[in-house]
Amino acid sequence: MSDIPLSPIQRVLRRLPGRRTKGRVAGPPLIPLVILVAFVLAAVFAEWVSPGEPYRQALRAGFRPPVWLDAGTWSNLLGTDRLGRDLLTRIIYGARVSLTAGVITVLVATAVGVAVGLVAAYFRGRVDAVLMQLTDATLSIPIILLALILAVTVGPSFGNVVLAIAAILWARYARVIRGEALSLMERDFIALARVAGCSPARIIAVHLFPNILNTVVVLFTLQVGDVIIVEAALSFLGAGIPPPTPAWGSMVADGREFITTAWWVSFFPGLAILMVVLSFNLLGDWLRDRLDPKLRQI
């Protein structure tokens, strides 16, 4: 479905040098980069940069507004949640949890997806048919549904959320990577490698893999944000990273009931998600324009 066969003319056109870079290609989007770097630093150095402790509760200090509103205090710059925990602190620690969840999930999914895609493209025939059949079946399961079933089955935890999402996500990569690799397989250098007696493993690892790296990088960037959003949806359904761990998704989910009385409880973690996901997407879009313009579907 995704690999649209190319007409001979198009194939020729594709190989012509300079075609893709025609027109001005903008430089990397600065604001998204800065945002991402800032959040990554916050996540890594959470212990040092956060003003308080993420788990310290004080019920009577619950729903304290941000410092610039009446009744706000300097000790809780962004206010507190319903259990009186400092929001800023939890958002900073939440960066660690949510970014890690996003990155690990996509890493796992990419590893499996790339392996499946490359093996299917290299061996073709039955291997390809079986692997793509599996991929098809996986893709036909709505991702939230499976994640929900898994979370309910084995209980929600950080690891299970990662596994549940990766269990479906890999199939998307497998499809795209296979398509990419199939067209690579027609290229001369693969035929040469074969003639030279390279083993399949070596051809896949040394000749195919490096040539799809661009695609992998683009996919990776575009999907981390998606995973953070799916995790949030799972939190809403009660199957996300369990409390009291500060994950952005569950913070938004817990705070959504108070958007009129204590809007800050869900707004700030929501804003963090928005900034990070938007940044990953804009960066990914730019990378794709730059590295792999024909990768359109993701």
């Binding site: 788990y55 509760q57 929600p156 009660g238 409390p243 009291p244």
Partner: peptide
Amino acid sequence: EAIAGYWEAIGVKTKLVP
């Protein structure tokens, strides 16, 4: 979550299982 917080405070490691 609040109960878990109270118990944590007296040294009872309380794992919340949603």
